[in-house]
Design a protein around this nucleic acid. Structure first.
Lengths: 488, 488
DNA sequence: GGGTATTTGTCCGTATGTATG
DNA sequence: TCATACATACGGACAAATACC
């Protein structure tokens, strides 16, 4: 019994303690990021769990153990306290701590033997990847520091709400902040009861589907379009009616001949063609909705990312009673925080309250409140400005690089807005080959095959280039690699 | 002595401290430009000067006061130091601080000149609320510190994943950790592809519904039972078939005569009656499922919270191919982080991959990864033990208090497990009156009206008492208040 | 068996390092 | 850089339990 050795230089202490006939070894390390009391706690716990410390054995007194381990009595006390509060030890006042009689049969040999292993063995790609996948965002653009600050503030100052079910449609405070933003930046007027927070665009679509189920069994979508909408609606049992596009957006005429009471559109920057719905087309779409008593689901996914002129007003601002407006923070802040939102016409809002009042909001408070603080403290506005500027640069650089490398062997659509461009390849090559050739050259791109539903095969092969995730400086190199992979 | 109320929203803490026979109120405001230690210093000083703190009285120790005021010990120490250096307090080494014997007779009644005045007169609740609402959790039980640590680690070390869409069924790392836990503690064996992360139990139920849609149009549920299941299934278009219970759980016989291929049950602690499904009943239920080629949806919401004997194995462990197992972190960690999970039979797992591969997981990475680290570093196990022990104490205290105050004027069901008890009131009084009387007395309870679906009106009025949110020490007082409100 | 010395958990103020703004 | 606030770690003081005379 006693200190075997003290390696003061490394400040590691090995100690052998005899307790109940056994010799037990404790290893404490001053330099470790894990506090001493936690190290001791973990080691005692694992010894109890694997049976090296039998039920009923008396633990050494805090004085004795502290002396043997060359640490403070209170430090031992902290470890004992925690073990006590978790039921590993029982305490007889002024007598000592004893190992609790707990049933460890059934537990595996060494569950969790104080393994603190950061072990981040991410599989690194061998070749440098330039990633044009759509939906990605450059890690440089996420405000890690601010987000850490607001998250910590949330954990510090809203403890009561951290342990309760929140509001059904989303935290009121967050919705208030978003209302201000929507009014100022997107010209959307609505009451707080019309605004709903959800964990993603698809979730919004699903809710929209539930609300429309009573009034229609068919939903029209853009063709080509966002496949997520297609799958969500078909999964809900809707018949999905694809409507063709031209470069002004959805062909409202074709919509009129179909017999449907709801349509899903992406007017601010059509996905994937990138066309921006013209004003006249917008007005005609609204006219159609009014005539048919139908609803328009407006997915404003790339919000006001417009690089040449000022953004057009959303449909919602023109016809608030006809439009279910959907947008999200995925594309501009991060897809990993999972916050989207929808603005409902008053009539549907009332219906949605009935639907959701029985289930809590699926968006964690620990995301909603930090986001509220983030907006409230002005971080969102500055982030938005910064990112718009940066995306414009990337957009311009990509466009220039494509023109330089490819000239008019391909045509580009979807300019001046959003987060992607669509390439029409003018030489004969399948999508698969384009993608796999690019991949071999170290460039990842997103095939658009899944996006077409039933339109006639487009005259040229299309490739979607998302520029949210690639670094600005990498763009010229990546485009050059593409040309080499495809044309050389 | 103790914290009266913490209005975290305004970040103002009112605390009443008893010292030397007086009750003293300290009001601290986090947001004030005046630092915490200065606010405390000013308030103590003014209390000394106006004689509310007599010479010679022992001040509360820095530990005690810091705990009551929910601030750091050092902050209290700083205030004491300043008061010491200015001669208001004397310090007996290793004993405590005492009020100095000053001559204050010359001082007039303007002692409050620099006492801190809360700027906002927030409406104080007149009555103290003791909250028996079901699903609440005491803020003391959430591991704020550890959660902050793992969240910060996530933001520091996983930047790449913070800006990307994650895996469809949930982060692989988290699922791996949970698999280990499920195997060791719940005897559930499954592959990682059978485990799915979702933002809540209801979300799991919805997914289960989607998977079962092809094989059945009716789902049986317990009556009385969890209303969320009822609403979720009916919203999806299922016909919902209520099945009566006895004190062994669901009546499998009644299930056999109904014509359904799916049943939703809460065998570990039936909601709301609290009955624990017996082993024989479990086996018969599985037999039924095998015969009918049906599925059992097992909601193991209160996991292994069992206070008398060892928890029974879940149904999933007995018939992995027949059971959709659902559980969550809501009840034991926090309902605000929104993480639930389900284990699917292999056949349904394959189907679910097809369903979900087109939409990203609705659970934020910033929740999933911290949770993974939390489990990996052993915090989950600690938390589980601590909380089980604490809940047992609360359960025992509540039971004893109820027996003492009410004797046999009410009967109690649902003992020895879970997070609630169900009271059967034997005197004539409606639920509404019981709830409103309790509310007037400052006790909030949860009416169970919504839980019955169509069973014959139960002989007695029922009241559900959830004890997750109420503080242990408040239980006897709250129960006494209930008796006074109901019987006096 | 009753007093006393010792051991025990517990409580006390304090010093140091660190994160935050 | 500096003030604030906090977690960690420390050794001394104390009273209850225990062991020993």
């Amino acid at each position: 019994m006693g200190t075997l050795d003290k390696l003061h230089r490394q400040r590691i202490q090995y100690s052998i303690i005899s307790t109940g006939g056994y010799f037990l070894v404790y290893i404490l390390n001053n330099k470790s990021p894990i506090p001493l009391y936690a190290q001791l706690y973990q080691q005692i716990r694992s010894k109890v769990l694997c049976g090296k410390l039998h039920p009923g054995t008396k633990m050494p007194s805090s004085r004795k153990l502290s002396q043997d381990l060359c640490i403070s009595r209170n430090t031992v006390g902290m470890a004992y306290d925690q073990l006590h509060s978790e039921g590993f030890l029982v305490c007889r006042a002024r007598s000592g701590f004893y190992v609790e009689d707990l049933d460890i049969t059934g537990l595996q040999a060494t569950p969790n033997q104080n393994s603190y292993e950061p072990m981040r063995q991410e599989t690194e790609p061998e070749t440098i990847h330039y990633d044009f996948t759509y939906g990605r965002l450059s890690p440089k653009l996420f405000p890690f520091l601010q987000w850490q600050r607001v998250t910590n503030e949330c954990l510090r100052s809203y403890k009561e709400q951290m342990v309760n079910y929140g509001e059904f449609m989303g935290e009121r405070g967050l919705r208030r902040e978003m209302l201000k933003y929507l009014r100022e930046y997107r010209n959307i007027q609505c009451s707080i009861d019309q605004l709903m927070i959800a964990p993603g665009t698809q979730h919004c679509l699903m809710l929209a589907g539930q609300l429309l189920k009573t009034s229609t069994s068919t939903i029209a979508i853009e063709d080509p379009g966002f496949s997520g909408a297609y799958f969500t609606f078909t999964n809900q049992g809707f018949r999905v009616q694809p409507i063709p596009l031209d470069h002004h957006g959805l062909k409202v005429k074709a919509l009129s001949t179909s017999n449907t009471k709801a349509v899903y559109v992406t007017p601010s920057h059509q996905f994937p063609t990138g066309s921006i719905m013209s004003i006249t087309r917008r007005l005609r779409l609204i006219e159609w909705a009014n005539e048919q008593d139908a609803y328009i689901i407006e997915d404003d996914y790339s919000s006001h990312l417009r690089y040449d002129v000022k953004p057009i007003q959303p449909l919602q601002a023109l016809a608030p009673e006809r439009v279910i407006y959907i947008s999200s923070f995925s594309k501009i802040l991060s897809p990993a925080i999972r916050v989207a939102y929808m603005v409902l016409p008053e009539k549907l809002a009332r219906e949605s309250h009935r639907l959701t009042e029985n289930s809590p909001s699926p968006v964690p408070f620990l995301i909603q409140k930090p986001l509220e603080l983030f907006i409230q403290q002005g971080n969102w506005e500055s982030h938005l400005r910064k990112i718009t500027k940066y995306f414009k640069k990337k957009h311009d650089t990509l466009l220039q690089a494509l023109n330089q490398e490819f000239g008019d062997t391909l045509s580009i659509s979807g300019k001046n807005a959003g987060l992607h461009l669509l390439l029409q390849i003018k030489w004969p090559m399948t999508t698969e080959e384009l993608v796999s050739r690019a991949y071999k050259a170290g460039v990842k791109i997103h095939p658009t095959g899944k996006l077409w539903v039933e339109s006639e095969s487009s005259p040229h092969t299309s490739i979607l280039l998302g520029f949210g995730g690639i670094e600005l400086g990498d763009i010229p190199v990546a485009v050059r690699l593409l040309r080499k992979a495809w044309l050389d």
